[in-house]
Simulated assay, not measured.
Amino acid sequence: MNLARFPRRRYTEGETPLERLDRLSAFLDGPEIWIKRDDFLGFFPGGNKTRKLEFLMADALEKGADAVITCGAPQSNHCRLTLAAARKEGMECHFIIEERVPGTYSERASGNMFLFQLMGVDSIRVVSGGADMTAEMEKTAAELRVSGRKPYIIPGGGSNAVGALGYVACAEEILSQSFRKGVSFDRIFTTSGSSGTHAGLAVGLWANRSGIPLTGINISRPNSLQVPLVEKVARETARLLGIEEPLPDSLIQCFDGYVGEGYSLPTPAMTKTVVLLARMESILLDPVYTGKAFAGMIDLIRQGFCRKGEKILFLHTGGVSALFHYQKYFDPELFPEDGRR
């Protein structure tokens, strides 16, 4: 695949690290666990959307846009990173915020909401949960066109074929790094949310004939909805890349038993896992995405899904800034299995 033929901005200098989690691996007495630190991507404090935005912002600039519009939940990491990229490029940035959980939007909230204000988002319009976000973004785009702007709409999570190219590139990066380190992964785990990261990785690993299975841990939807969503973006990404061979039916694998009550709503397993990894490996997970996904991976390991001695890789998709908004859910006294010894 020749990704160089697609316009791309570079927001990260070099590759993100592959880190072996020795203490956690010994603690679980199962597979050898590694982590891909995409929380180290550009635009502090990092996150997976940066890779997508390298292609999306380049596409917007090539089309002459001077403003971007996107959408997300009140603590959206994607919105934060889109705003950061827009500021870097000297473009306006406008948000449609979906209040999926009633009463959760507040201009005075900490976490990403504070960063929205700090970076000076140009406008925020709040809509109720279940709203047609595409239609809402189109409304804002129409208003901007009337004022003489040239807006570019970025879908939630940056999850379309253009954005997914960022994780096709990431798949190639992982394969190159693992070759240089002399480690052959038996499985890769990723959060499966808006679908662009999962779809891009799946296409990249498959098209490079890696033979490495990819497992998604859902954070918002049941498999009946999530698998078709990821498959759709994967097909569109393959088409954009000019891949004519049909994608295998078994390419997309998801586990949906770790969502809890819904998107962004904490689970006991998530909070316990965030504390465990912080105390054992000095790595922070976020409460909405990686906390739930890592908790799901640990549960699958304990069920025997991965054999002892296998080498597995977890993709850390970032989002740590949202953690500070969820402080009230973390009581260290509730987690005696904390890895301090």
Rank of each mutant, 00 (worst) to 15 (best):
V233D: 01
A234P: 15
R235S: 06
R235C: 05
R235D: 04
R235W: 03
E236V: 07
E236F: 02
T237R: 03
A238Y: 06
R239D: 15
L240F: 06
L241Q: 09
I243R: 11
E244S: 12
P246N: 09
L247I: 11
D249V: 06
L251K: 10
I252V: 13
C254T: 15
C254K: 00
F255D: 12
F255E: 14
G257R: 12
Y258R: 04
Y258A: 01
E261Y: 08
Y263S: 09
Y263P: 13
Y263F: 15
S264D: 07
P266N: 08
M270K: 01
M270L: 02
T271A: 11
K272Q: 11
V274S: 00
L276R: 14
L277I: 14
L277D: 02
A278R: 11
M280T: 15
M280N: 08
E281M: 00
S282G: 02
S282E: 04
I283N: 03
L284H: 02
D286T: 01
D286C: 00
D286I: 03
P287V: 05
P287I: 06
V288N: 09
V288D: 10
Y289H: 12
Y289M: 13
Y289P: 14
T290C: 09
T290G: 08
A293N: 00
G296S: 04
M297Y: 10
I298P: 11
D299A: 13
D299S: 15
D299W: 07
L300R: 15
R302V: 03
R302Q: 15
Q303P: 02
Q303R: 15
Q303V: 05
G304D: 05
G304N: 06
F305A: 14
F305Y: 13
F305D: 08
C306L: 12
R307T: 01
R307L: 08
G309C: 12
G309M: 14
E310M: 10
E310T: 09
K311V: 00
K311S: 10
I312F: 00
I312K: 04
I312H: 03
I312Y: 03
L313F: 02
L313G: 01
L313W: 07
L313D: 08
F314H: 11
L315M: 14
H316P: 07
V320P: 11
S321D: 12
S321L: 15
S321M: 14
S321V: 12
A322F: 04
L323R: 05
F324P: 07
H325Q: 14
Y326K: 05
Y326I: 01
Y326F: 09
Q327E: 14
K328F: 02
Y329E: 14
Y329H: 14
Y329P: 09
